[in-house]
Design a protein around this nucleic acid. Structure first.
Lengths: 190, 190
DNA sequence: GTCTATATAGAGATAGAC
DNA sequence: GTCTATCTCTATATAGAC
């Protein structure tokens, strides 16, 4: 556990850099610089760049699962829980304005690279999708309908992140978040 | 004009490859291979990779302007013209399922690379944004309101492309296109 | 576990012949 | 206008000392 301190630092630095600069554009040298270790030492912890990517995705999956289960406990109604999801656009506004959505931009990049870990990255989307579907089911939606709404919300969040980043427009995020929250409240107890 | 045949071939090949594999991931060698010229000849036409990117963006801007002015003539009502925009998701469905939206994925990549041509790529978004705004004004919206709706539609299209690509889900595109078309018709003559 | 030094491959870019 | 040959730089990855 304690022995893996450097390894964890590498994962954390890689996570940030992959998000800010993209996976391919980020070099070992850059990560090593951030962690303040030599490039040689690097390979003691990870044999290939792909291994770091897998570790980063794995860490993001863990973090996301924890976040979702926290929302699960926090919200009093499924609508409230869904609004927790919508409001991450506000919580992470500054980062989104600069680098877009960490999930969307990674999956898009890996798709273009036709990368082996593409499926793992997509699992991040699936995590949100299934969680949202479950909330819509609790509202009273049928399974298919709930999934459709989950996808709808995911897509809107993605679009908002992309456009807000392109135009560096914080106000647009706020507007759309408000609209999405209203949309969710429109599906109040059926 | 006729002398630029090779140059045009390069731009066209680069355009496709940048879309399918991303800008950074596409090498001169790959483009040259596609065009069936040597890497050396390449540099007669373009001195740097950035120059090709600018030429590609410029070509995309031209093509987009032509497409928008065609829609301008084709549609009988502003609603119809806006639906032309929405339906490109259907027209380009197969490519979108594989590579996402060419505008969104390029601007996102250039943003992460902090590339000098980032603004030029964003101009592609602006082209659609202003055109859509104009249509909403013709429907009867105020200027600010029209822009808000333009951004809203752009964002939804982006989100649909991103999610459809991640889950390789053609049906999702169709569903969302239907919903967006209904949304537009909801803004019939005010 | 961390370092320095080095191997190897691929990229962008140039020079000069044809 | 197109080619071959080559330069240079940077990236991933390895070897071996400490």
């Amino acid at each position: 556990m304690k022995k893996q301190k450097t390894r964890d630092h590498i994962i954390e630095a890689a996570d940030q850099l992959f998000y800010q600069q993209g996976y391919e554009h980020t070099s070992f040298a850059h990560i090593a610089d951030d962690v303040k270790i030599s490039r040689g030492n690097f390979y003691y912890h990870f044999k290939t760049k792909d291994e770091i990517l897998d570790a980063v995705i794995s860490a993001r999956l863990d973090k996301t699962r924890k976040m979702l289960s926290q929302w699960e406990q926090g919200g009093t109604s499924p609508q409230d829980r869904i609004k927790c999801f919508i409001r991450i656009l506000i919580t992470n506004r500054d980062k989104i304005l600069n680098y877009g959505c960490p999930v969307g931009t990674l999956t898009t990049e890996l798709a273009k690279l036709n990368h082996a870990s593409r499926a793992e990255a997509n699992a991040l989307f699936t995590l949100f999708r299934c969680w949202l579907q479950e909330q819509f089911i609790q509202i009273g939606c049928q399974e298919d309908d709930a999934d459709e709404r989950a996808m709808h919300l995911l897509a809107r969040s993605q679009g908002v992140a992309t456009l807000a980043s392109a135009f560096h427009d914080a106000k647009f995020i706020d507007q759309e978040v408000t609209q999405m929250c209203e949309w969710v409240d429109g599906y109040a107890p059926v």
